[in-house]
Amino acid sequence: MRIFVNGEARIVEGSPDLASLLQQMEYSGETFAVAVNGDFVPRSEYPRTQIQDGDTLDVVAPVVGG
């Protein structure tokens, strides 16, 4: 299936949960947060969040700001 991660299309095998998908993409540590289709997903919900075809993910991390 095709999903979008930070605006870029990706082909993903099967229908992974969010925890597995993030691991596949090599996100690690606790300095990132995720929204799926524009809605925040708490870290505790990653294993229970099934990724569907066409989903959009935003993965964000701290940056400087004013």
């Binding site: 930070n6 605006g7 993409m25 090599e26 996100y27 690690s28 990132f32 947060a33 935003d58 993965v59 964000v60 991390a61 701290p62 940056v63 400087v64 700001g65 004013g66």
Partner: peptide, 11 residues
Amino acid sequence: TLSLRRQNPQQ
């Protein structure tokens, strides 16, 4: 103050 922006794992 600081913010959040999209980031890939390599950054």
